[in-house]
């Protein structure tokens, strides 16, 4: 058991307009520590490694069991969830930084609303008639359920977008998570009613054509979502629809 103190280097930034700087913290080792429990400890005793008083660190978290998607950050340079990052498994000093591709709010907290906007753009929902009692839903085979379920476990953490070489302001690329949701809803018996519109939304600038199949996304996804499979399936469907549209013109 490594009983030595744990060293953190945290990149801090008081507001979007101010400059970033690094602070170091030293914490006593406990079994089972993770990055969020360490940030909580700093809040209880906000002193840097050299004993200077500082402010508690601003970060996002909620569930602490890797299902809400709040706590994504760069840990030793890698995009991942902080609540499931066990200190025992990390190289020290542990470097914490905010995700780099999203507008910074403060310290480790960023604004990831772009993903929610993208989900609107592709109409990521099942268009039901209403909430009144219309009886059971469509029958699904066990196989269909087993296909859909992994896709619907996406926690909107945006790690796949952070690591994607094509996801940036220039391309306006929607990113892998949104494409995978298109696959999910297009394969649902009722969701398929909006299939054409969803594929349409993925055509042109910022659409699926921007993807260079670098596969960084699938490697980093904490929920092991088969993103490259989704991209190639949806890519094929977009292509087919584009050609069909051309011929029909």
């Amino acid at each position: 058991m490594p009983e030595k103190p744990v060293l953190f280097k945290i990149r801090r930034q008081a507001s979007p307009a101010q400059k970033a700087y690094w602070e170091e913290f030293e914490l006593a080792w406990h079994a089972g520590m993770n990055v969020i429990s360490s940030l909580m400890e700093i809040a209880r005793n906000p002193l840097t490694r050299d004993g200077k008083a500082t402010t508690p660190i601003t970060y996002d978290s909620n569930c602490l069991e890797e299902v809400c998607g709040s706590c994504a950050m760069l840990i030793n340079g890698k995009a991942r969830m902080a609540c499931s990052a066990l200190v025992a498994k990390l190289e020290q000093p542990i470097r914490l930084e905010a995700l780099s591709k999203f507008p910074i709010i403060r310290d480790l907290s960023v604004d990831r609303s772009v993903l929610f906007e993208n989900l609107k753009r592709v109409k990521a929902w099942v268009p039901i008639d209403g909430t009144y009692d219309l009886g059971a839903g469509p029958r699904l085979t066990m196989e269909d359920q087993e296909q859909a379920y992994p896709l619907s476990r996406c926690i909107s953490c945006c790690c796949c977008m952070e690591v994607c070489p094509q996801f940036n302001r220039q391309t306006g690329f929607v990113g892998a998570a949104t494409i995978s949701q298109v696959r999910l809803f297009n394969t649902h018996p009722t969701g398929a009613a909006l299939k054409r519109q969803r594929l349409q939304a993925l055509m042109g600038d910022g659409g699926i054509q921007e993807c260079g199949y670098a596969q960084n996304c699938v490697e980093v996804c904490p929920k092991d979502i088969p993103l490259t499979r989704s991209i190639s399936e949806v890519g094929g469907a977009v292509m087919k629809q584009a050609i069909g549209d051309l011929l029909r013109r």
Partner: peptide, 12 residues
């Protein structure tokens, strides 16, 4: 039933 219609992938 409503949740099922909304697309919740309930086990089958």
């Amino acid at each position: 039933d409503l949740l099922d219609r909304m697309g919740v992938p309930f086990n089958r």
